[in-house]
């Protein structure tokens, strides 16, 4: 299925320009055009799970709003499952699911079950299918005890799980997740991630995941897209992002006694503290020959390898404002 539809989500030079009016002086107003999304081009194949990251105000939410048809692009071409979202919002709506971490699609003063009943009618889900999907979600998301509880009485983690179930009852082909783990505790996060991973693997649901929590991406997505100032600055694997960001891994060695900084090919000492030394080497290189060389030439007691901090890579990328590709 994946190979069949490589351009399930297809953006070609998509732009969104907002006009912002700003007050200058007492009566005068200045009109300014803001490019929230500026020539965005990418494709997502059916069944892919893609992380979509970028700093606040980069254009992530605007992109998702255009993909759901709430906003009309100012330029370019955009298709989801062959549908132009802005033109056929309602038709597309039956095929997508959306989860906003910061908003709820559930009805505040009704029990969870009533919200699901509304979804049932709204998406015209066949009765048998609805029951099956609801049962599965209730089991996997641990909602059994919550179905009769009004949404306003749910904790954030419970509500989030309820929201995810609500987005999936109609078997959407595409799921947009906007910060699905925001504000959740470690256990709830793990639960949500596990569920999403299984969903993608078993149902083949295409997932676009927007988040500031890079652990979400590390645990769920093979592919990551980075957007900044409305432009795509990176599109590839997470490990590729480390390399592209000129990231380094660190070999930490503990020696028997204090020695001058270690001299080996392919690595350099970045820090020395008593008998412990830190050696930086390219993230793309293997640690094995380096370890062998150090062990051969120095009185090695213990060692460990530290992965580059992906947050640091991205933070640097945002700061430098340059495409790393």
């Amino acid at each position: 299925m994946t190979a069949m539809e490589p351009d399930f989500i297809d953006l070609d030079g998509v732009e969104k320009v907002f006009e912002v009016r700003r007050r200058v002086g007492l009566l005068r107003r200045e009109r300014r055009r803001v490019r929230a999304v500026d020539g965005l081009t990418f494709r997502v194949a059916r069944g892919e799970m893609v992380g979509y990251i970028g700093p606040n105000g980069a254009g992530k939410s605007t992109t998702v709003k255009m993909l759901t048809g709430i906003l009309t692009p100012s330029g370019g071409r955009l298709r989801v499952a062959g549908i132009d979202p802005a033109r056929e919002r309602t038709r597309l709506a039956r095929r997508i699911g959306v989860v906003f971490g910061q908003r709820t699609t559930l009805w505040w003063d009704l029990p969870l079950r009533d919200s699901y009943r509304l979804m049932h009618r709204m998406y015209r889900i066949p009765d048998a299918r609805f029951r099956e999907n609801l049962d599965r979600c209730v089991e996997l998301l641990d909602l059994g005890a919550l179905l009769e509880v009004p949404v306003r009485q749910l904790s954030l983690g419970q509500r989030m799980r309820g929201d995810i179930a609500a987005a999936l009852l109609h078997d959407p082909d595409v799921l947009y997740l906007d910060e699905p783990t925001i504000g959740l505790d470690v256990v709830s996060k793990a639960k949500v991630r596990g569920f999403l991973r299984d969903l993608n693997a078993e149902q083949g649901t295409t997932v676009l995941l927007t988040t500031h929590d890079l652990t979400d991406i590390e645990q769920l997505c093979k592919r990551v897209m980075v957007i900044d100032h409305g432009r795509l600055v990176y599109d590839g694997t997470l490990s590729g992002l480390r390399e592209a960001g000129a990231a380094t891994r660190t070999l930490v060695v503990d020696l028997e006694r204090e020695v001058p900084p270690i001299e080996v090919a392919g690595a350099r000492v970045v820090r020395v503290e008593g008998t412990r030394q830190w050696l930086a080497f390219p993230a793309s290189a293997s640690a094995a020959p380096l370890v062998a060389e150090v062990a051969g030439a120095y009185p090695l007691v213990d060692l460990s390898v530290r992965e580059p901090d992906i947050e640091a890579v991205i933070a640097r990328m945002y700061a430098e404002r340059r495409p790393v590709r």
Partner: peptide, 12 residues
Amino acid sequence: TGDIAVDLYRPA
């Protein structure tokens, strides 16, 4: 609050 976005992407 912008929650209207949730209402707008529904098939209703």
